[in-house]
Amino acid sequence: MAKQLYYEDVEVGIDIPTLVKHPTTQQLVKWAGASGDYYQIHYDKDFAIATGLDGIIVHGRLKIAFLVQMLTDWIGDEGKVKKLACQHRGMDLPAVDMKCKGKVTNKYVKDGEHCVECEIWTENPEGRKTAPGTATLVLPSRGK
C-alpha cells in the first residue's frame, strides 16, 4: 500500500493516481457471483443483442466498485470515503482497458473534518467518460 495521504498533500486540481482495470468476461462472471447481479446482458451475448445492445456490457456497479477502489488506494488506511455519486453515461465493453481517474475540485475543513472533493470517472479507450461522478473524502491532517 502507498504511504498515508494527508490533507496538506492535496491541492485543488491535482490528479488522483489512475487505476487501470481490464474487466474480462471472466471478471464479469465473478462480479455476478460476488454481487448477486445475474442480469443476462452481462454474460449472455445473444440475450444482450436481443435487448438492442451490441454485445455484453460491463456492470455499471462494477465500475463504481472500481472507482471506490481507486479512492481507497489513494486515501490510505486513515482516509475515509464520505460521499459518492456516480451516473452511468456510457456502456463499456469487456476485455478492453478501463481507466479509473479523478481530479481534486475542492478542499475545506468542516466540523473538524478535513474534506477533499473530487470528480471521478471511468474512461474508455476512446477517452470517453462512461461513468462520471463525484466523491467527498476525509483525510487525516498533519496538524493534529
Binding site: A34, G36, Q69, T72, D77, E78, V81
Partner: peptide, 22 residues
Amino acid sequence: EHAKKSQYGGITFPPGILAASL
C-alpha cells in the same frame, strides 16, 4: 494484523460493497 493498526481497528468491507446487488 494490518487492519488492526488502521483507524478501523480491524478488517472492514470496502465502501464499494454497497454497489453489490445483494
